[in-house]
């Protein structure tokens, strides 16, 4: 079965984990530079230095003893995004908002200070970062662009652009679904939507089981929709790629109502599922690009 025509065709199109590691990650990213992308606090340092749009950093908690002072500091804001600097897959992220009485709310319920402090402590103890110690990043909340209302009204969708040698080669939009609980990650049930790189138009969505022209839950049309700020979005990803010492990376971009495209995160080993979403292989894409010849074998 492995010698079928279909599988030969797959081998010509697809870049698997082995090839990605050997010919892309190890060649274009130095191990010592991973820390600039893997750690969100470090990544934001680079982004701020290069004046690249990203969510404003409200505070960073490095030690348990700093919790109280930083917490006092951020009371002046109305909405906080709390993240572990080394988390992965959206684990440990809490969005809290003040209600009209000035009480902190999470997902429609009041959250007490002690629970928030405990969450900080949990992050610092490293529960979301594979055991090592970690830092808490507190930043401005994203206000999703109204464009996303036209697809699915809940959660924060984001774009993933994969760049090789500062050239954007493939991208997708990730949108939450009913079963993804507001999260947009593919393996948490989010819907990935392919993007035609040259036109900035959405193609079809993929949720792990099927391809869709409409969002499976909101039933709103996806196919052929034009992404607002597409050129700026690409431009931002290229700037980001140039600012980091990494040459193969996945850049996550959100579209804020007030600010426009903003960088959320940078990944050293972007996942390979984007190929399924776009129904297009990384290998064929890279091999057919005039400036990326001879990189993949």
């Amino acid at each position: 079965m492995f010698f079928s025509k279909k599988n030969r065709k797959l081998e010509q199109k697809i870049c698997g984990i082995n090839q990605r590691n050997v010919e892309l990650v190890y060649v274009f990213n130095q191990r010592k530079d991973y820390k600039w992308a893997d750690d969100k606090v470090n990544a934001k340092t680079i982004l701020h230095q290069n004046n690249i749009a990203c969510a404003e950093t409200y505070g960073v908690i490095e030690r348990i003893g700093d919790i109280y002072s930083v917490w006092k500091e951020v009371q002046k804001y109305d909405c906080l995004a709390i993240k572990p600097a080394n988390g992965s897959g959206g684990g440990g992220i809490k969005i809290i908002r003040k209600n009209n009485d000035g009480k902190w709310m999470q997902g429609g319920k009041i959250i007490y200070e002690e629970n928030i402090f405990q969450h900080f402590a949990t992050i610092i103890m490293g529960i979301y970062s594979l055991g090592g110690r970690d830092r808490v990043l507190i930043e401005r909340c994203i206000d999703p662009h109204p464009f996303f209302q036209e697809i699915y009204p809940i959660g924060v969708p984001d774009f993933r652009v994969i760049l090789l040698k500062d050239i954007p080669i493939m991208s997708m939009l990730r949108v939450p679904t009913d079963r993804s609980d507001g999260k947009a990650n593919l393996h948490q049930g989010g819907l990935g939507i392919g993007i035609d790189m040259s036109t900035g138009l959405l193609t079809t969505g993929f949720d792990g089981n099927n391809y869709y022209d409409f969002h499976p839950d909101s039933h709103l049309l996806i196919k052929g929709k034009e992404i607002p700020f597409w050129d700026e979005l690409l431009e931002l990803s290229i700037h980001t790629s140039r600012a980091f010492p990494l040459q193969y990376l996945g850049v996550d971009i959100v579209l804020d109502k007030h600010i426009g495209p903003m960088i959320m995160e940078v990944n050293v080993r972007p996942g390979l599922g984007i190929q399924i979403v776009n129904q297009q292989g990384l290998k064929e894409t890279i091999q057919s690009h005039p400036l990326l010849q001879g990189i993949l074998h």
Binding site: F2, K6, N7, K9, L10, E11, K13, I14, G16, I17, N18, Q19, V22, E23, F206, Y211, Q275, I276, Q279, Q280, G281, H297
Partner: peptide
């Protein structure tokens, strides 16, 4: 094996969607 870049057996199934 360390320099082998072929698709893993499970990846044939995972990416079969593309075809």
């Amino acid at each position: 094996l360390g320099r082998w870049i072929g698709l893993r057996v499970t990846e044939y199934k995972r990416f079969s969607w593309i075809i």
